[in-house]
Nucleic acid binder design. Structure first.
Length: 287
DNA sequence: AAACTGCTCAACCGCTTTAGC
DNA sequence: GGCTAAAGCGGTTGAGCAGTT
């Protein structure tokens, strides 16, 4: 037995909304709101439409403060940041962009933004293969690498994000002052997706509530974490790895599971502490 | 001018989640 | 805890438009 339809589809109007229908719905919503029931709304409002259709029309087009038109660079950056960290959770992404709807963002990503950033990756791909051998205690910075930066310096953590982005590049290295990336989640995802990570010159910075800034140096532990554990000893030499350099972003909370030795001071939880990474490398083995 | 192609985006479909009982 | 209906959500579709041949 199939699912009961939400309305009598044969009797309700489908397709584009007319200005009269828009006015009718808007007028009703202004006066009464949804009344907690979208299914019953069309009848009350005198609309020959499915309740779901009314809801969609209201949310995506008629409700107040909807922003239409071009997306700004800042909005682009936010979308890429979030997509690379949470994937196609459009409603969540939309919640970070006031006035934008999930539908808008989804369409924008699928038609424009994805191509834009994938194009950048392909343009910069030659840079990726030119990373010189470097001493592993140092951050892997180079002038050429400056152009190959994951949006906001965060790590794709699901397959859809990775396949779609495949390391999108942007010149925005200073963005992402407040990323919320659970530490333990990163490490697990990297293992699953064969990512590498190296933190260099990390330090703990002021928490959002204020307080002193205590530097932390991860030293060799970074190497275990990034290179040897997850990349089979290949190193960041450009042979098989994409290197991505991100600067000045913050991680909040989380903890490293299963290997507390990686933590400065022997382990434990970061909880609400804010970690500031002065430089960070993220890469992916291509084999 | 007509046919074709590619792009955009509003709207739909159907699955999942949530809320109420 | 189980059931049901509604709401939420993300993938997909297709009409309309612009640009190209």
């Amino acid at each position: 037995m199939g699912r009961a339809p939400c309305c009598d589809k044969a009797r309700v109007k489908k397709g584009p909304w007319s200005p009269e229908e828009d006015a009718q719905l808007k007028d009703f919503m202004d006066k009464y709101g949804t009344g907690g029931n979208w299914i019953a709304l069309p009848q009350k409002a005198g609309l020959n439409r499915c309740g779901k259709s009314c809801r969609l029309r209201w949310l995506n087009y008629l409700r107040p403060n909807i922003k239409h038109g071009e997306f700004s660079d800042e909005e682009d950056r936010v979308i890429c940041n979030l997509f690379s960290s949470i994937g196609s959770r459009w409603s969540i992404i939309a919640s970070h962009l006031p006035g934008r709807t999930d539908n808008d963002i989804k369409n924008y990503w699928n038609t424009k933004l994805k191509k834009k950033f994938l194009g950048l990756v392909s343009c910069n791909s030659h840079l990726i293969k030119q990373q010189p051998q470097q001493h592993h205690h140092q951050p892997y910075l180079s002038s050429s690498c400056q152009e190959v930066v994951l949006p906001a310096g965060i790590i794709p953590h699901n397959s859809s994000a990775i396949s779609a982005l495949n390391f999108v590049s942007t010149s925005a290295t200073t963005a992402a002052s407040h990323l919320h990336v659970p530490y333990h989640y990163q490490s697990h995802q990297m293992e699953r997706n064969n990512f590498m990570l190296n933190f260099g010159n990390s330090e703990r910075s002021c928490s959002s509530s204020g307080g002193s800034c205590t530097p932390i140096n991860y030293g060799r532990r970074d190497l275990q974490f990034g290179q040897y554990e997850y990349c089979d000893g290949r190193g960041f030499d450009g042979d098989n790895n994409i290197l991505i350099n991100a600067e000045n972003y913050n991680l909040y909370g989380g903890r490293l599971e299963d290997d507390s030795s990686l933590l400065p001071g022997g382990g434990g939880e970061f909880d609400s502490e804010e970690l500031r990474l002065d430089s960070c490398l993220v890469g992916r083995c291509l084999h």
